[in-house]
Amino acid sequence: MNLTTTRMLRRTLLAFGLTAVATTTLAQNSITVYTAGPAGLAKSLAQDFEASSGIKVNVFQATTGQVMARLEAERANPQADVLISASWDTAVDLKKRGDLLPYNSPNAVKVPSNLKDSHYVAQGAAALAIVWNPASGKTQPKDWKDLASSQYANALTMPDPSSSGSAFGLVSTLIATQDYGWTYFETLKANGIVVPGANAQALNPVMQGAKAAVMGAVDYIALEAKAKGEKIEVIYPTSGTVLEARPAMILKTARNVDGAQKFIDFMLSTQGQNLVAKTRMLPARTDIQALRPGWSDIKVLSVKELNEQERSATLAKFKTTMGLK
């Protein structure tokens, strides 16, 4: 056993070595893309881009938090060329830090101006919605207000704004909206709302029926679950909601700037945007058919851009209001 083991070990180590060499040699005609989910989109964008450009794409796909942590840890020797985050704030901050290269893709013409900047541009967007389980026996909510009624006592979840950029956008917008403000969140707290973590953790209890509704769920995940047969309804509140756009950007430390720009162009091409639409996200380009309620069907509230201090102050206030530690 010992001999074969050693041989096996040697062979495997050799294989690892070869992989290493292969990875480095490929680096010349390849780009590295770090992207937040969904995995299917990351994969299909990479494949189709490879097919059309001949440039190999190394994809690292994880949650926004994981992607950003890896990027941060790698700063001594950055690896990524393109970054796609699920939180607009990360792009704003990275630009301020001077970590991004400016790029204005010719394909971005049809992207609304609030979804692009000199240094970043949206891949697509999601809206925040109420997800309601009809089997819960509660009346169907139509607006955020309805969730504050006693009917929804102990029947609500909400994604955590400290880990979900989109949930934060909703909080910072609603507190500045007439008839809402912090009082609204105090009422939700009194109503026993639970803040169990990221989007999926807020959605699962509602799908199984432990809770009746999610306040502020990312809509495309819920729409996809519904399309797969989950008996849930995705409701866009009448007083309006916020959009969370997913910014794509080229890092200043990119090794293959030309390849990175071509990737952004492809992502914003008709072909790339149709791939985005397939995930039930809202494509960034208004001229691409969405497979879901589109730009004209949702009342969008404008989100006030906050600086870092304002943001952490709002978050702290949210935590004390909701009794979070």
Binding site: G37, P38, F60, A69, A73, A200, E224
Partner: peptide, 23 residues
């Protein structure tokens, strides 16, 4: 955190499904 881009393991795969709402 460490997987080279393009490589996924069982648990990252499972975690992804959970995170994307397909438990």
């Amino acid at each position: 955190m460490l997987a080279p881009p393009g490589l996924s393991t069982v648990s990252t795969h499972i975690f992804n499904q959970f995170a994307q709402g397909s438990p």
